[in-house]
Computed example of a mutant assay.
Amino acid sequence: MAKKTLSQEAYEQIKQNLEEGLYQGYINGRQVARDLNIGFTPVREAFLQLQSEGLIRKVDNVGYFVNRVELEELIQIFQVRECIEMYVWNQTFDKITEVEIAKMKALHEQEKELFRQGILKEYTKTDIKLHGVILDFFGNADLSNLYYNVRQRYMLCPVKTVKQASVAAMEEHDQWIAYVEARDREKALNYLQQHINHTKNRMKEGFITFLE
């Protein structure tokens, strides 16, 4: 296995810190370099990659700032999710195998345990993987990339917002997966659409509460 470059190590550590909410507002690159005990160049390269992913933004003659999901952007995330997920499920429902269903069930159990332990970052990643099972099965790399890039924006939502929306979401996963396992196409797809809309509304409520 190739050894990671300093830029890659810096990128992974800074991204993890962003996901955990350790940076707020302005990010001092030289201070980050000191904190990571590396040179400034790898940090600068990491910043460029994170900027390309929309996790931070550059203000000319000032520096880099943490991006945060605004309410309008949150709604757009769910619009993209609904378009992609409903399309793919409509195309593939009759083709999924027991392997995909087993993956969904295993990821669902994993997300429940992570949430119980309060490991919200990993819980969110597992939720993304759960909904991504069908995308991976479908095999359209462009759609998968769009889905995962959009879902990554969840990491910039306030933790309290994610936590508030998650309990009901996991309960809905129980019923949704049961419909999929029963091969009830109509109920599974209708319930998925409802689940996406309900999650959007819960996130909106949590977001508004966070701003108050």
Rank of each mutant, 00 (worst) to 15 (best):
Y147L: 03
N67C: 11
A178Y: 10
I177F: 09
V167S: 11
D174K: 11
M155S: 12
Q76K: 14
Y11V: 00
V167L: 12
F137L: 05
K3N: 09
H198Y: 04
W176G: 00
M86Q: 10
A33K: 08
G139S: 07
E53R: 03
R183G: 02
E72C: 01
Y23G: 15
I177T: 10
L6N: 12
A102T: 08
L135S: 00
F93P: 02
R185W: 09
E85G: 01
R202L: 14
E19N: 03
A141D: 11
I208A: 07
E98R: 06
N37C: 11
Y148R: 06
E9D: 13
E73P: 02
G63V: 00
G206M: 02
E20C: 06
I27A: 14
E109C: 06
S7F: 03
C83H: 10
D60Y: 04
D35W: 01
D127V: 03
L107G: 05
H131F: 06
Q117M: 08
E171F: 11
R151P: 06
E122N: 06
S52L: 04
E100K: 00
K112Q: 15
T126V: 04
M1W: 08
V150W: 14
G21W: 01
I134K: 01
Q24Y: 03
D142F: 15
V167N: 13
W176R: 07
D136K: 12
R30Q: 08
T161I: 03
V99S: 08
F65P: 09
N149D: 04
I27T: 14
L71T: 12
R151S: 10
L146V: 08
E53F: 01
Y179D: 14
H198Q: 13
N140R: 10
M170G: 05
K105E: 15
V88Y: 07
H131G: 11
A102N: 13
E205F: 04
F115T: 10
I119T: 14
N145K: 14
R68P: 04
L107V: 07
G63L: 00
W89T: 11
V69Y: 06
K95M: 05
R202C: 05
M155H: 12
Q152W: 06
M170Q: 10
D60G: 04
P42E: 02
Q193G: 09
I177S: 13
N90I: 04
N149E: 07
M1S: 10
F47L: 01
T209W: 13
A10T: 01
I75Y: 08
T41M: 03
V88G: 09
N145T: 09
N17R: 11
L120N: 07
H131D: 11
Q91T: 07
E82V: 00
K95L: 11
G206I: 01
V62Q: 02
I177L: 13
D142K: 07
T199M: 11
E20T: 00
L22M: 08
E9P: 02
E82Q: 12
V150S: 15
M86D: 12
E82L: 13
I75T: 07
E45G: 11
N28C: 08
F93A: 01
